[in-house]
């Protein structure tokens, strides 16, 4: 992971994929559907944010497990910055979703299991940061927050993967609303959607890697008493 952070090939890939998403996302021919109309293009921006958030939170949990088994400070830093980047993607997903909801459902926020799930997921990770700030001792903070991170992720799984499937949702693809498979007859959108998911997730990882390197440098300077 450390070597991966300093290599540049995947950052170039991120640029290519995100540029492709933005350009193709606005130019590709999309099926004309009632109500959705051109807002269907939000699929390339809103949905990948949630995919990215889930992937980053999952990685954050994996690094917490690694911290508990190996006790290395870097793993804790990875885990906290992955959670940070996940929250960033989650907030972006929420914003893109809300403005889409305003044009299609007529309101900024509706009572929908997926919306509530997203809000609770963000609350859980904000609580994770509150917990981190409650400790002064670095090792104790890393250990206790790693335990909470793993525990919280386990309770997040039913919230994101099981609960929305037990109830009807206003979202396309569930509760009788047309979804991906129905309107996407010529597969045009798939060619943009999958690269978009990878691109935005990699973008989150890039943000994470910058924050991680900043933290490492900061710790380094603190050790040498250069920074107050």
């Amino acid at each position: 992971m450390k070597r991966l952070i300093h290599s540049s090939w995947w950052k170039l890939l991120t640029i290519v994929l995100v540029l492709y998403t933005v350009i193709a996302g606005f130019l590709v021919t999309v099926p004309a559907l009632p109500i959705l109309n051109e807002t269907i293009r939000n699929l390339f921006f809103h949905v990948p944010m949630w995919f990215g958030m889930t992937i980053l939170f999952c990685l954050s949990m994996i690094f917490s497990v690694r911290y508990l088994s190996k006790g290395r400070t870097e793993d804790d830093l990875f885990s906290v910055e992955l959670a940070n980047a996940g929250i960033l993607l989650g907030c972006l997903g929420l914003v893109t979703g809300m403005q889409w909801a305003y044009f299609t459902w007529g309101d900024w926020w509706v009572n929908d299991p997926k919306l509530n799930g997203a809000a609770i997921a963000l609350l859980i990770y904000l609580a994770y940061f509150v917990l981190r700030n409650a400790f002064e001792d670095i090792d104790k903070r890393a250990k206790v927050s790693a335990v909470y991170n793993i525990f919280a992720f386990a309770t997040l799984v039913p919230l994101i993967f099981i609960l929305p499937r037990l109830t009807d949702s206003l979202h396309p693809g569930s509760g009788g609303n047309p979804g991906f498979d129905i309107y996407d007859l010529d597969n045009n959108m798939r060619y943009v959607f999958y690269p978009a998911v990878i691109g935005w997730t990699l973008m989150g990882l890039w943000v994470m890697s910058l924050r991680y390197r900043y933290r490492i440098l900061r710790n380094h300077l603190l050790e040498q008493n250069i920074m107050p």
């Binding site: 509530n116 609770i120 509150v130 206790v144 609960l163």
Partner: peptide, 27 residues
């Protein structure tokens, strides 16, 4: 058990437990 490790136990207990319990509570 997690909150008892921090000093401000009572506040932390509510902050940490409410988001985690919501999925269960909904069902």
């Amino acid at each position: 058990a997690i909150a008892s490790k921090a000093n401000s136990n009572a506040t932390l207990m509510a902050i940490l437990s409410f988001p985690v319990i919501i999925p269960m509570l909904l069902m």
